[in-house]
Design a protein around this nucleic acid. Structure first.
Lengths: 147, 147
DNA sequence: CTAGGAGCTGGAGCGCGGTCCAGATCAAGT
DNA sequence: ACTTGATCTGGACCGCGCTCCAGCTCCTAG
């Protein structure tokens, strides 16, 4: 698809920031921290030029981060990829473990949601009743928890 | 031992820590930060005694925190509850807004999960069939499959 | 009575994940 | 040439949410 070494296909840091949702600060930070698979190419003037592959990788980084992977682990993953073929089982273990954590997170969030939804329901009812009656009556304990 | 022979209706900070999953440090911190609805009762010796209502409230705090509510907002909520009846609509708005954020989080996580699951699938396939074959060369990134 | 563990306070410190600043350089438009 | 804006580097700094420390007190078990 892309002719190797074609500079026209590369993006500046600002454009990459736009596309990935990361700030330019974060992009430089990630690079410094070794979260990228390869070194970012530079123009003669020293500006970063990101390839499509760089952007793809950053997209993955964003997903992994969004789902709670710590930078340290992301760094480990980047390291494995950087090493090249041979460690796929390890990459798989890492991703798979993360996936399980994500599933657990979703489960936990759903539980939170249902707890909150119940509270919302209670308040909605109180509010509806209060507005129907006019004002809430502080003396009415209403037989429920105030929370 | 671990369990002081204390009256049933109130709990020491350690017991509350056990029941809520918060550390004793966190419990004292939350109190200092005004995240509790009322002041915690004390023994004559100055030790905290938590009521069931305190523990209930802390349970809610834990859920809200787990689902990403910042302490500042939790504090605001605590403040509203502390004020007593009259501000239910505001409490409702707060909880409802949070609930929506939680739902958005779940959505985002599910998207991440599916992206990750796809990667896991790819790696699983590679690992299953590729132990003997050279898989993918990171240096030949141009035009190659993304990681 | 004594020992040892749980709890107290105020305040310092920490890990994470960036964010921001200063001061310089590069690149593009007019 | 000049201006404007994007980008560069190294390092300082920040917000959040706790966590830990020192030094002391309380309280119960043996």
């Amino acid at each position: 698809m892309t002719t190797p070494g074609t500079p026209a296909e590369s993006l500046g840091i600002g454009q990459v920031a736009d596309r990935t949702g990361l700030s330019v600060h974060a992009l430089r930070f990630y690079e410094r921290e070794g979260l990228l698979v390869g070194p970012v190419r530079r123009t003669s003037g020293g500006r970063r030029r990101y390839t499509a592959a760089d952007v793809d990788w950053l997209g993955i980084c964003v997903r992994l981060r969004e789902s709670g992977m710590p930078l340290a682990e992301l760094k480990r993953f980047a390291g494995l990829v950087r090493e090249g073929p041979g460690n796929e089982p390890e990459r798989l273990r890492l991703l798979d473990a993360h996936q399980r954590r994500v599933e657990e997170q979703i489960r936990a969030l759903e539980e939170c949601r249902s707890v909150i939804a119940r509270k919302v329901g209670i308040y909605a009812e109180h509010v509806a009743r209060g507005e129907a009656v006019g004002l809430w009556d502080p003396t009415a304990a209403a037989g429920g928890r105030p929370v």
